[in-house]
Amino acid sequence: MIDIVRQKISKLLSDGSVKGVVALAMANGHVAPCLFQKEDDLEPLCLGDTKKPGDARYPLNKVLITIARQYPEDVFGVLVRGCDERGLYVLYRLNQLEPDKVMTIGIACPQELAKACECKKPYPDELVAGEKTEGITQQGVQDMEDMDLSKRFSFWKNQFSKCVKCYGCRDICPMCFCRECSLECEDIISKGELPVDIPVFHLTRAMHMTDRCIDCGLCDETCPSGIPLRLLYKKTSKIMNAEFGFTSGINKNEQSPLNLMGPAPEK
C-alpha cells in the first residue's frame, strides 16, 4: 500500500501539481507529521502503523492549515483516511482551507482499525490505496443510551471529574482552529480550578463539535485521563443525523443546519 502512496506523492511532486505533501514520516523509530517537498526524499514516508494499524496517526489537516495560512496561494497534497477527508470537507465549509488548493492522497483503513474506531466510513471518497472495508455500527452510543439515567449520570460524572484540563482534546483536534477558545473564557470556565465545572466544560466542547466532529478519535487517544470523549461527540453526531439528517463531512458542499437561518430542514 505504501508503495502506491509513495508513487502517487512522487508523481504529484514531480509534475508540479503540488508544492508539498503533508504526510507522516518515520525517523529514529518515531512517527511524525512531515511536509514532503522533493520526490526523491520519500524514503521515510510512513502511514502511521507501528504496533497496530493507525496507532500513530496525527492531525495532518491541522498541519495543512498551519502551512496554508502562511502560503495561501500554493496547492498542497495531504495524506487522508476517511475521517481526514471528512475533516477537509468541514474545513472547506468553515472556510479554513480552499478545496482547489488541496489534493488528497486517500487511503482506506483496515478492518481492525475501523472496528476499533467504530468508524461509519473507514475510507475516503477519493481512494488511492487500500481496500474499502465496511462501516461499523456505533454500538458504544447505543450501549450508553440503554443505561438508565442515573447510571449515565454517575458514569459521566466519574469520567469528567478525571479531567486534568490539559486541553489536549482541543489542541489535537483537527476541527479546532479558533484563535480564541470558549473553553478559556473565564466567564464560562473557571480558571485554575480542578475538577472542571461538570458538565459545563465537556458539554461546551461537545456543543462546539456537534456539526464538526468527523470522528477521527484523536481526542480519545490523547486524553491522559482516558475520558471517552469520542463517545460524547459520536452522540452529538447521532443527534444531528437523527434531527436534521446531517452528517458532518459527508460531502464537499455540505451546509450545517446550525449555521442556516430558519427552521430545521425536513428530514
Binding site: 450508553m144 443510551e145 439515567l149 442515573s150 447510571k151 449515565r152 449520570f153 454517575s154 458514569f155 459521566w156 460524572k157 458538565p199 458539554l203 461537545a206 456543543m207 456537534t210 460524547l232 452522540k235 452529538t236 443527534i239 444531528m240 434531527e243 436534521f244 443546519p257 446550525l258 427552521p263 430545521a264
Partner: peptide
C-alpha cells in the same frame, strides 16, 4: 430551537 434540541439530548445522554 435547533441548538436546544441538541443540548437537551446531550444533557439526557450525560444523565441529566
Amino acid at each position: 430551537e435547533k441548538r436546544v434540541t441538541v443540548l437537551s439530548q446531550m444533557l439526557d445522554f450525560c444523565g441529566i
